[in-house]
């Protein structure tokens, strides 16, 4: 959703009076030590602003993400001053969410596969991995599916496959996960809600 510049720029924690550009004295551009900051403020001002919600503790603080329209990359994440719960403020984890983005070199960007008895990862394609995973699931399920229990009651379940997670994905994804698990007959289903 597009956030207006005014919404983005207003912050709480201020007793600010009027401040206009013309009152800011000398032009710092040629001599400021931190040219990076100068570039950043310009980039942030001209970026696409969108809203999100913090991915940590369940207070559900609002975020404003600034995305560089040229590169498509997020360049800044701060609190959303309009959000009634956090009013633009964030704790250490929320304040650092930028380090969960593509800017973090440790982000997984390839499908990885570890073969039996191997000591390393190999890169694979999605198609290869999904096909192989589906074949594994089917083979395990078909080998041990329990249509009826010892009492002759219809149970249609499988006890040799288990699923865990997640409270860290969006609700729509949770709903698909639970639909997937149940349609396969999985009964060992659990996640962070219990843990």
């Amino acid at each position: 959703m597009k956030v207006t510049r005014r919404e983005f720029l207003v912050g709480s924690g201020t007793l600010i009076g009027g401040l206009t550009l013309s009152s800011l004295g000398i032009n710092l551009e040629p001599i400021i030590a931190y040219a990076d900051e100068m570039k950043k403020i310009d980039k942030v001002r001209s970026a696409r602003q969108s809203t999100s919600i913090c991915c940590y503790c369940a207070v559900g603080c609002g975020l404003i993400c600034s995305t560089d329209t040229k590169t498509g990359k997020i360049i800044n994440i701060e609190g959303d001053p309009e959000h009634p719960i956090n009013e633009g403020t964030l704790c250490a984890k929320g304040a650092g969410i930028f380090q969960t983005t593509a800017a973090n070199e440790h982000r997984l960007t390839k499908v990885l596969y570890r073969a039996p008895y191997s000591d390393n990862w190999q890169e694979k394609t999605w198609d290869w991995a999904i096909t192989r995973i589906a074949k594994n699931i089917k083979a395990t399920r078909d080998a041990s599916f329990i249509a009826k229990n010892s009492k002759g009651q219809v149970v249609n379940r499988v006890e040799t496959i288990a699923h865990m997670g997640s409270s860290n994905v969006d609700s729509e994804e949770c709903w698909l996960i639970t639909a997937m698990a149940r349609s396969l007959g999985i009964v060992y289903i659990d996640h962070q809600a219990r843990v």
Partner: peptide, 8 residues
Amino acid sequence: VACKQWNN
């Protein structure tokens, strides 16, 4: 952390 984030 906000200081680090803003100032890279």
